[in-house]
Design a protein around this nucleic acid. Structure first.
Lengths: 347, 347
DNA sequence: CTGTTAGCGCCTTCAT
DNA sequence: ATGAAGGCGCTAACAG
């Protein structure tokens, strides 16, 4: 029987007494605020350290008094995955209102650097925290850095801007996701040889490019017998994707595997079904939706690679909350996993 | 731009004024405490409903003043997965101390119903919340119900006691986990035919039995050409498992798949390596550990089916916290997934 | 540079 | 059955 926590709870007052100063001074030290002699700072920090004192977050929250304002910046359009994130953010509103926190969803043209930059710049000073689905572009980076410099906490969502000062990235490693797709295709086609097709939304999208990169890595390294065809761009559109897939199937009768990098999965699935290739073609895609769920159950799809939209939504909000209250972040909890979903482990 | 949360924040006082009563009365209604005329209750509830009022958790937490005491009841022994949970619980202690909450780990003989029952009974009235790795047995169920009746919040962890009054189960559906293993073996062996071996700790363990059940379900339904051998019991022990696996491999040269239901995976892996069967034998097991991680990378194992120990630990604690403070539970967040882990999506 | 003080919103006695 | 009032521990304004 081991105690994994501290016994009785100290308060600021105890530390103040210990260090021979007033409450206010301890508070200043605790928050690295100026106006305290370094000698005094040391004394106070000592006392804090000695007792492993951690202020009671509830009291701080109450005393701060202010409401927290967060915003999530999402792309417009009908991408199901993004819709899921928006829905999950909405699902938290009750929980958040109980914490005096509001979240707004701001729809922006995140694929246009100029537009996104303008949107971000206009938000300076208006929110305590921002979660942004951001394009990686110098002016966007600058806008993010500006926001952070002005005291807004920023996390990037789904798509990162690695060189910026955002305090966290909430999303997956897309190269690894692509590699996972590659391994699944390679393993599931088995000993057969033949061609493998790749359909992407656009190779100009960073996440799509990264997934393709990872996919090809695995294919060349480990499945040299499988011939990977050039990438086809379905622009994340069902109709276009169906059309392109149909042509591909007609043209290459020895096509044994298909990897859909982005959206448009219903289109691809339709083409496969119409060609009567559901059984023998290995088909892997991304994101769990009402559609892909059905395709898994029917056996049209063999596996879905997914990042949990709910987890990403909650993680972004949790991070912003922790940053705003400067509460401890449980790093492990905020790692987004690459989920492999097959028929039997559907959530 | 849509606001997903409430505007200004009301307080108890506002509701009190609205309903023409005092703070204390609103508080009573809010917590279903007795001593309020039903007519008054209605008036207050109306006002609360009308304004969608939710009390500020931070204020409640501060006012309550009391520290919360939780305990996690874990089996003794060296099961790595259980150790991971214990470690993750420990990792939260800093975060918890900031919330005036302590967690203790209690090691008990959870496989012995009498012993477990006694342990539980002795805990009545001593904790605000309990997470229990529990055996499903009538006397254990009774003990849990007793605890709940005395105001202790109880969640079951890893292994459920479905008929009890525990307010939550934190863990996975083991039948589905077994089915997932079955699908993976079936798909990964490809078009080959041959025999499939199953090694379990003990068929008397509920979770092992359920996994085997799910595994066999899939094999009979979908892979009738694969002959599944009778279950071998390695008692979750590396040495025994290695020995048994070695015999199996020697006896059945056409063994093409192996499913290890419980622990002892290093033993099984060793036997496979020594027999030089790493490449052609499909090997699936449970739980991500330092070992299984290495086996995935080396290609000895093809996939690991896992439940995230960190998630389970955090989920159990979060649930107990929410229950104790009667804060909203985000159900979706507490669902434990069956993770399929292959080399490329290793976390 | 440091201390004093008035709340923040809710819970909990204690009166009525 | 209901109300009044004093904190809980911290923050932030204001004094000194």
């Amino acid at each position: 029987m081991s105690n994994t926590s501290l016994g009785t709870s100290l308060t600021l007052k105890d530390i103040a007494r210990e260090a021979g100063v007033s409450l206010a001074t301890v508070d200043r030290v605790l928050h690295d605020r100026p106006g305290v002699r370094s000698e005094t700072v040391r004394r106070v920090k000592d006392a804090i350290e000695r007792h492993k004192f951690r202020p009671f977050v509830a009291a701080a929250e109450l005393a701060r008094g202010r409401m927290l304002r967060f915003a999530v910046i999402m792309p417009h359009g009908s991408n199901v995955f993004m819709q899921q994130i928006i829905t999950h953010i909405g699902d938290m509103s009750g929980w958040l209102s109980t914490r005096r926190t509001t979240v707004e969803t701001i729809i922006a043209d995140v694929f246009n650097p100029t537009a996104l930059t303008a949107t971000l710049e206009a938000l300076i000073g208006r929110y305590d925290g921002l979660a942004v689905v951001a394009l990686d572009h110098p002016s966007v980076r600058a806008a993010i850095d500006d926001l952070v410099a002005h005291g807004t906490h920023v996390v990037t969502l789904v798509s990162d801007v690695p060189s910026s000062r955002r305090q966290h990235y909430v999303g997956v490693d897309n190269i690894a996701a692509g590699r996972t797709a590659g391994t699944l295709v390679g393993r599931l086609v088995g000993p057969r040889t033949g061609r493998i097709g790749i359909i992407a939304g656009s190779q100009a999208l960073r996440d799509h490019a990264e997934r393709i990169f990872g996919f090809n890595q695995v294919m060349t390294e480990e499945y040299p017998d499988l011939e990977v065809l050039g990438v086809i761009e379905g622009r994340d559109d069902d109709v276009i994707s169906e059309d392109l897939t149909a042509r591909l199937l007609a043209r290459y009768p020895d096509l044994i595997g298909l990897y859909n990098v982005g959206a448009g999965t219903p289109g691809v699935a339709n083409a496969i079904s119409k060609a009567g290739r559901e059984k023998d073609l290995v088909f892997i895609g991304h994101d769990l939706t009402a559609y892909t769920r059905r395709y898994l159950i029917r056996g049209v799809m063999d596996a879905v690679i997914s990042q949990d939209a709910g987890h990403e939504a909650r993680s972004a909000i949790r991070l912003l909350l922790a940053l705003a209250r400067n509460d401890q972040i449980l790093e492990e909890q905020e790692k987004i996993r690459i989920d492999i979903i097959m028929r039997d482990n559907l959530p």
